[in-house]
Amino acid sequence: MSTASAHHPKLQHHFVSMDQQFDASKLGMWLFLITEILLFSGMFVAYTVYRVWHPEVFEALSGALDWRLGGVNTLVLLASSFTVAASIHHIQNDNRKGLVRNVILTIIFAGVFMFIKYLEYSGKFSHGVFPGEAYAPFGDHYGHYADVPYAPQFFSIYFVMTGIHGVHVLVGMGIFAWLAFRGARGDFSSEYYTPVELSGLYWHLVDIIWIFLFPLLYLI
């Protein structure tokens, strides 16, 4: 981001410099991130309210979720966050191959995360654990939760929270596929990597949301 970049082809006409353009985009992204935080905050508030009302239900039901799968997913998502940070580090040093490699790794980690999520969801659906009124659990692991009052609330909150989070992961995978394509085409350099930086910020936020979801839902 030197002043020599003043006539960079990616400089839009209404900005004075690449620096101004980069700073503006980044501020915009941070503002977008807090809208994401507030979007999720609704779910966290619902979680807290019901937990304060029915602590024993939430404590018991966190046992219904497999902490091993959740834990592995946490590590997978942390690894993907690391590869994203690494990809930005590489492009800042004009290492395009490093960028593309790490972005593809990120997509793979995200894919693993979604696959494990799929295993968890299908395991619950096959035992009648659905969000909302369709909730009718049966079988070894879930059957005894059938008549626990406010258990449907717990699972609804679980499905909605992880569901919205999962949608964000899917969107992130799409974005990273696009980044990998553009990176391979050679669109980015240490002079211009705004899309990588912004997508990275988005991805870290998705990771942070999961950092909170994991203990709240699976552990405590």
Binding site: T35, S41, A46, A134, S156, F159
Partner: peptide, 20 residues
């Protein structure tokens, strides 16, 4: 964003009956 999540939950309340 909060009206966004509120409307989303209302939508799920209507379609799935999530009981929030």
């Amino acid at each position: 964003p909060v009206i966004g999540i509120t409307m989303l939950l209302l939508l799920l309340e209507k379609t799935l009956g999530i009981g929030i």
